[in-house]
Write a protein that binds this DNA or RNA. Structure first.
Lengths: 241, 241
DNA sequence: TAGTGGTCTAGACCACTCC
DNA sequence: GAGTGGTCTAGACCACTAA
């Protein structure tokens, strides 16, 4: 007795894990086509139904996506899921208000102790610093401070390289650094004099602060970003059930 | 030709819809046991596998939950999913810091025009108002203003009725009003003099504002709540993939 | 022991994509 | 036409619950 169910991991879980291992260890990167259901079933010696269940679960978790007639692909990170998108929605009833970004400053710069530590550099290291403003209808609502590991994006401090509003795709293509996931933390604060001036609000007005840590494969952090936005342009909605 | 696929709704979608209809129209309420897989399959004239797929989907959406050997139940709303829980976590490394609530004021009170409108009452209506503080280790970090439809919770203004920290379960049991879902909106602001005094912070310090609309069946709104908390005790984390 | 959900298989048929 | 995923069925066997 009590031989019980120590290690009864369902087969479909093992299939999921097999795929996730390939993703986490970089054998599969975002955008890759994975083997078809029949091939996986044969490889792993399970039925196609079991493979289907595993893939369905990973699709539900947004780790994969499927196209009928084409195949199953590894998901690409989607920054539309950022908390960022809750700035200035609900403005004039509709959605889809686009935030335009503009570079204000870009150069190599000594990072603070805290930021160097976050990016796993020794204190006083030189990092790549990019400062941008975010605008809606020419009104600034955001300030963004972004710090990158300089040797991963060599030359990005030069003006010749165009920085698009969503810069991650550019980083992937230009420098071959896969962007795998981000963590965001949202808090609130009040505007200091400098921030207030940039955002066109009174000093001590409320602002929303969004800290983002962005990672490449193997949990290597590649960017530390702090975005400060006007609180009156931010509202985050959620449903509870 | 072009008889195409106008109305090819998959069978499992229809099964999902059948269950959801029962829930939305109050024939099934939170906590209810629904028919077993074989019974549903026979009722709806589909295979058990199709029923299983439909129920799996609804479980994924947290509309149902299942217990092996017992059956499938309609989910009860879970306020642990509230944005509220991001107050004062990350304090001292660990989770599980409980927020104690204390009633400061409870009485019938004329609501503002805005609140009367939200609760679908004529202006100048008398509503039930409850004001509470939220405390961690005897330090106040929250103020909560709660407005209820008075005829749904008759007598709740009297002190004889104890108000627990999580008051929704009490409302369901005492007044038989099912609480079905809530919508929350998060923004930031600065503390006015009164709020600052209560929270023990300086006037104009940053605060986080959480507005909650709570609904009973048939989309009947039963509570409007505004919670104001110290921003330095709030941080909301999310992952992007 | 009967009834429930959980896992796994085998196979049919369809819709979509690409060559 | 070959290959992919999407839907649906039928049935075996197991694990858990309750009486």
């Amino acid at each position: 007795m009590n031989h019980s169910n120590e290690d009864h991991i369902p087969l479909y879980r093992r299939v999921e894990q097999h795929i996730l291992d390939d993703i986490n260890q970089g054998r599969l990167v975002p955008g890759d086509l994975i083997p078809s259901e029949p091939k996986l079933a044969k490889q792993l010696n399970v039925s196609q139904g079991t493979v289907k269940k595993a893939l369905d679960n990973l699709v539900n978790e947004k780790r994969l996506y499927r196209h009928q007639g084409k195949g199953t692909y590894v998901s690409t990170i989607n920054f539309n899921n950022s908390l960022f998108r809750f700035f200035s929605y609900g403005d004039a009833s509709g959605h889809g208000v686009r935030i335009r970004k503009q570079v204000i400053e870009r150069r190599l710069k000594i990072g603070t102790k805290h930021i160097c530590q976050q990016l796993d550099y020794p204190p006083e290291s030189e990092l790549l610093y990019i400062k941008r403003g975010g605008y809606i209808h020419d009104q600034q609502i955001l300030i963004e401070h972004s710090w990158w590991c300089p040797e991963l994006v060599p030359g990005l401090e030069k003006e010749e390289i165009h920085i698009p509003d969503l810069m991650y795709a550019m980083v992937v293509e230009t420098f071959g650094v896969p962007v795998v996931r981000s963590e965001e933390t949202l808090t609130a604060d009040i505007a200091n004099q400098q921030t207030a001036k940039a955002l066109g609000i009174k000093e001590n007005s409320p602002v929303v602060v969004l800290i983002r840590h962005t990672y490449s494969r193997n949990n290597k952090m590649i960017e530390y970003r702090k975005t400060i936005g006007r609180a009156d342009k931010f509202s985050y909605k959620a449903e509870i059930r």
